[in-house]
Design a protein around this nucleic acid. Structure first.
Lengths: 127, 127
DNA sequence: GCGTTATCCGTACGGATCTACGGATAAGGT
DNA sequence: ACCTTATCCGTAGATCCGTACGGATAACGC
């Protein structure tokens, strides 16, 4: 058989210990769903720009990022679908901002802290 | 022309403001490279298990996660390549642990905080 | 030495994801 | 009315990723 049952753990105590406090697959999937939304250079920078500038339209976002509008539109599509960004239409311009219920920990830890730390770190993993 | 130059920003002040503090594409790419390594249910749980159990071999990890060994092997391959996990061979068993230079902010914010928060939140985005 | 066990590697397949384009919509300006 | 501008949508093609399989390696027990 290819996929051996591996019936006997090598360190049963540690397996039990890990098993007991591991997040469930369901919890992990929820969190990683959010994280992978942030784990993209364009989306991360869109969120960051909205965080510091309050409200921006697609064209201005593209201008600020130096990206093309297609990329930004696609990024916003996903972020809106996930409920992280909300849009407000005024005339023919659509203004985007972070949703009022944007997960605070995500903003604190990823947008603020991690970005700042990365900024001050030369190139930790160029190997 | 399809991709209009969008020469004139709608809110130049905010564009300039965002442009001035935005992480560079390079910085963003470095950070999102790390984040996407964590942004996967199996890899996140592997890292979490190693964090709480210090050191585990592939088979025991698979057992603890309820995943098959192929998945865990693949996860470890990426994590080792990125330098987040190191392996120690003892006999025919390979023990894995978090690298001594595992980025502390990542461990603090993502593994500890975010996982804990997600654990205590029912189902924030089931819409 | 021989079979078994723990693990890794290479590869091929299927699926998800991103990009780029053409066209649709809708609001102004003249 | 007509042209332009701002934005969105659908789709097709490319590309990236994870899974699963077959086989290789290496150590241990008999």
């Amino acid at each position: 058989m290819t996929e051996s049952p591996h019936a006997h753990p090598i360190d049963g105590a540690r397996v039990a210990h890990a098993r007991g406090r591991l997040p469930s697959l369901d919890e992990a999937t929820r969190l990683t769903g959010l994280l992978s939304l942030i784990a993209d250079p364009i989306r991360l920078r869109v969120l960051y720009a909205l965080d510091v500038s309050e409200e921006l339209c697609v064209g201005d976002l593209a201008l600020a990022l130096g990206a093309n509008e297609d990329q930004v539109t696609y990024a916003l599509r996903l972020l809106r679908t996930a409920g992280l960004v909300i849009a407000r239409k005024e005339g023919r311009v659509v203004f985007n901002r972070l949703a009022p219920d944007f997960p605070a920990p995500l903003r604190e830890h990823c947008l603020h802290q991690l970005v700042e730390i990365t900024r001050r770190t030369p190139a930790p993993l160029t190997d």
